[in-house]
Write a protein that binds this DNA or RNA. Structure first.
Lengths: 158, 158
DNA sequence: CGAATTTGTTTGCTCCCCAAACATTCGCCG
DNA sequence: CGGCGAATGTTTGGGGAGCAAACAAATTCG
């Protein structure tokens, strides 16, 4: 019964029920897509994470956003956001301005350099997206995004 | 032009091109699914990460595996694996036995307690998978996994 | 046998995430 | 209008995931 215990070099492993699990496929694909994202930027001499890109887009499209509002939109704690903004601000992509209306909050905004960089980043993201979707038709790509959103809606946050 | 600067509490943000990006949907869904996984286990009084579950399945199905082979299968560095195995071993789920044939490697195996725990964990994972797939037909679930695998194949690892 | 390679480990570094505590500021209510 | 509770940003402390480089022990190959 069964096979002799693994010994030959790099025989494909038995993954059991793993391949039938949606969560498993999700995790592996996410990891590969993340690596492709990083490689795309590294090749172009740029450095940015997917999360940072999303953050920059949000700030660009919602000028004057507060850190709390941004943290909520990103689904992370406000304390997690602090060092991320520190880094982006140190790279002169973004500024924390005092809000004119509320002394507690900061009004986040891209710097001119940040807007220029975001334009470059967006081109790289398009290249990256095109490659990871290269095995899919446009209809399949839409289907995939739609299915992912529906799965997200079914997952309980607590 | 445009809209007045964001001020009302929690007006839905402008996400720009983000919703059309596959990488964005992937990241958000992954995060929600991860949270659901953790919540499912926490509710049952168990504690395990998706990565740890995958690791346990792999060790269960491939007795005598070495750490290098396992790291390769998981797509992580061998040094990353060390503290993970330490933790699982401290919980008495898994053991590092000396390999009878190669003094450099460890033969990984589940403990009896590990096998019992994995059976419990597998039931919880099934519950979790059922919930996150509850908005999809079985055909759609298969389609989703298939599309994810094809995307993974298109992402370059470098 | 001796040199090169493999394996597991340690150390050091970066990043992401949360919880709790804190000072500042706002907003409400008496 | 004055005080008190709530919100905001920050700091600190903790944990986990990940990589690279260096190292000792063991194997393999010349």
């Amino acid at each position: 019964m069964g096979r002799p215990p693994a010994s030959s070099p790099s025989r494909p492993l038995d993954r059991g029920l793993l391949p039938s699990l949606m969560g498993y496929a999700l995790r592996r694909t996410q990891s590969a897509v993340f690596a492709d994202f990083a490689a795309t930027f590294a090749t172009a001499g740029e450095s940015l994470s997917p999360g940072e890109f999303g953050l920059l887009v949000l700030v660009d499209r919602n000028a004057g956003l507060s850190q709390m509002a941004l943290a909520r939109a990103l689904g992370i704690d406000r304390s997690t956001l602090v060092p991320i903004l520190d880094r982006l601000q140190a790279r002169d992509l973004l500024v924390r301005r005092p809000s004119p209306t509320d002394g507690r909050t900061h009004a986040l905004a891209l710097t001119p350099a940040g807007r220029k960089a975001l334009a470059r980043f967006s081109r790289l993201v398009r290249t990256h997206e095109k490659r990871i979707a290269s095995g899919l038709s446009t209809a399949e790509t839409r289907t995939l995004i739609d299915l992912l959103e529906r799965v997200r809606a079914s997952a309980r946050s607590l």
